[in-house]
Simulated scan of single mutants.
Amino acid sequence: MQKKRTFNKQLLIPLAALVALAVFNFIVDPSFFKITLVKNSSGNPVLLGNPISILDNGSELAILAIGMTLVTAATGGQDISVGATIAIAGSVILRVLCGTNSKPETLQASYLTAFLVACVVAMFFGAFNGILVAYFKIQPMVATLIMFTAGRPIAAWINNNELPIIKQASFKYFGGFIPGIPIPTPFFIAVICIVVIGLVLKFTTLGLYTQSVGINENSSKLNGIKPEFMKFLTFVILGLCVAVVGLIKVSRVATINYSNVAKDIEMDAILAVALGGNALSGGKFSMAASILGAYIIQFLTTTLYKFKVNSDALSAYKAVVVIMLVVLSAPTVRKKLAGLKAKILKKKEA
């Protein structure tokens, strides 16, 4: 019962943010929630509207939030290289599909093969970050700064600085719509990822061990857990999430822009974890809250776009939210708020 109360309390912040955004948009412009059924350029019926856009783009963030939550819980730090690694994963997919010809008439490999290769590559770079953090004891943000800096040049080098183009219409299904299904495919991909991680956390000790390492590394050692391996594993899992998002990203446009693909997405992923009520210093986490936080971040982004906020200013707005959440999650602030709550309750009782 206590566990259930704690879980519900953690969901309070993201749910409150969701309600606040929904009420604000409903008051200012009720048409924000309008959904229409139209035919796309291929003649297939698809749903369009801000809520659909939130589900579509928020699904990428939800997938990333899965891996970022585990990394944060285990290491007490964040991976700031996910955007650059997404560029690498997307570049690998295009390279495998196109081969040496950047604009092939026929693909050189199947979509599954290209995706699996991208998974291996993304997990390799995740493992690289994990080794630096777990075994060389480098602070996560500093360790991942290497890939943050080098990732996009590596992505461009993979395809010889060319921009491969996939002409097959079916490739866009992963980041767009499957004919006959009006809901964006990324939402279904996200649901699959959420179900998989839910089953993993339920039937394995991954969640328990990750939280144990994040709460007290030395105590976890005494209980037979290997903190270094758990930290390493979380980065590898994040690498797998990155590969999935990389597939969605390049599928949307059937090509890649090395400098802009997934730009600043790492900030949104970190913010999703924080908005979910998870302490950025590590320890206990709620995967459901992080995933909900991811869709709320996209809700905020869509709202800002709706009201014509300059795209260059989006990061500034989100930075303010990050600062507020980090301050509120600080132990000192939480302690003071708890004391204030206790005083108010005492006055009421008196």
Rank of each mutant, 00 (worst) to 15 (best):
K3T: 14
L21Q: 14
A22P: 04
F24R: 09
V28K: 14
P30R: 08
F32H: 12
F33V: 07
T36P: 09
N40K: 06
S41N: 11
G43Q: 09
N50K: 14
P51S: 08
I52H: 10
S53E: 12
D56T: 02
D56F: 07
G58D: 13
S59R: 12
E60T: 11
L64M: 13
A65G: 09
A65V: 10
I66S: 10
G67H: 08
G67Y: 09
A74T: 15
T75N: 02
D79S: 11
G83D: 01
G83Y: 04
A87N: 05
I88T: 02
I88G: 03
I88Q: 02
R95P: 10
V96H: 00
C98A: 05
G99I: 01
P104I: 03
P104L: 01
E105F: 04
E105S: 08
L107Q: 08
Q108T: 13
Y111W: 00
L112W: 05
L112G: 01
T113F: 06
L116T: 05
V117K: 00
V117R: 00
V121D: 06
F125M: 07
F128G: 04
F128L: 10
F128Q: 03
F128H: 03
V133Q: 11
K137H: 14
K137I: 12
I138N: 10
I138D: 11
M141T: 08
T149S: 12
G151Y: 04
G151M: 04
P153V: 04
A155M: 04
A155S: 07
A156D: 00
W157Y: 08
N160G: 06
P164M: 02
I165D: 09
I166E: 12
A169F: 00
K172F: 00
Y173G: 07
F177N: 09
F177E: 02
I178N: 07
I178S: 09
G180S: 07
I181N: 09
P182W: 14
T185C: 05
T185G: 09
F188K: 05
I192M: 03
I192S: 04
C193L: 01
Y209D: 15
Y209L: 12
T210V: 13
Q211V: 15
S212M: 13
S212Q: 13
N216F: 07
S219W: 00
L222C: 12
E228F: 03
F229I: 07
A243V: 01
A243P: 01
L247F: 03
L247N: 02
A254T: 14
T255G: 03
T255S: 14
N257E: 06
Y258G: 03
S259V: 12
N260L: 11
V261K: 08
K263E: 01
D264R: 04
A272M: 05
A272F: 05
A274R: 01
L275K: 04
N278P: 05
A279I: 10
K284Y: 15
I291H: 06
G293T: 07
G293Q: 06
G293C: 06
A294E: 10
A294T: 05
Y295D: 12
Y295F: 15
I296F: 06
L300W: 06
N310V: 05
L314W: 13
A319P: 03
I323L: 13
V326M: 14
V326C: 11
L328F: 15
L328S: 14
R334M: 15
K335W: 13
K335C: 08
K336H: 15
K343R: 13
K348P: 00
K348D: 07
